[in-house]
């Protein structure tokens, strides 16, 4: 079964533990500037929204890459940047409609979420369940459950 990251912004408090975990996982450093997941704060709307690559099936980044440096991991479904092949041309950063693949000046390569090989550090670090790693075919399950809970099969008892 393939799994995917599932984000529920309503549960996010903006603590950035996910960004730290990502930075540690990929750079062995607590530097959120290097994180592949970013939490956006919409201050006046009182919303925090974690945002990262959703691993498009027909990934723009992968298709745009002139050196075939972005490959599909058939196990996790992640689109992975192969550092030795990446030449840092940044065409993928233009192709991606969501901005979730970005250049890293210090390495001369691009980076994007690779699902940590199937155990995403961000989901593990999230203290509120705003980021979970769930059955890719059922990311809507929790939302369905919430609406299901609102159905009233026996109005007379209310």
């Amino acid at each position: 079964m393939q799994k995917s990251l599932h984000i529920d912004p309503n549960k996010c408090t903006g603590c950035l533990q996910c960004e730290m975990a990502c930075s540690w996982e990929n750079h062995r450093s607590f530097t959120i500037a290097k994180s592949r997941i970013k939490v956006f704060s919409f201050h006046e709307a009182a919303r925090f929204v974690p945002y990262t690559c959703t691993q498009c099936d027909e990934a723009w980044c992968m298709m745009a890459c002139p050196t075939e440096a972005i490959k599909l991991d058939p196990v996790t479904g992640a689109k992975i940047v192969l550092d030795p092949t990446c030449v840092g041309c940044k065409v993928c950063t233009i192709a991606c409609p969501f901005g979730t693949i970005n250049y890293v000046a210090s390495s001369g390569k691009v980076q994007k979420c690779d699902l940590c090989g199937g155990a995403p550090a961000c989901a593990k670090a999230c203290p509120t369940g705003a980021i979970t790693f769930v059955d890719a075919d059922w990311t809507g399950l929790e939302k369905m459950r919430q609406w299901a809970d609102k159905t009233d099969t026996n109005p007379a008892t209310v």
């Binding site: 309503n10 408090t13 903006g14 603590c15 950035l16 533990q17 009182a46 925090f48 203290p127 509120t128």
Partner: peptide, 19 residues
Amino acid sequence: LVKNGACFGCTIACGRISR
């Protein structure tokens, strides 16, 4: 109260966000 918010790295999140 609209929601609670956290400071950096905080897993408690006591902050009040009001409208």
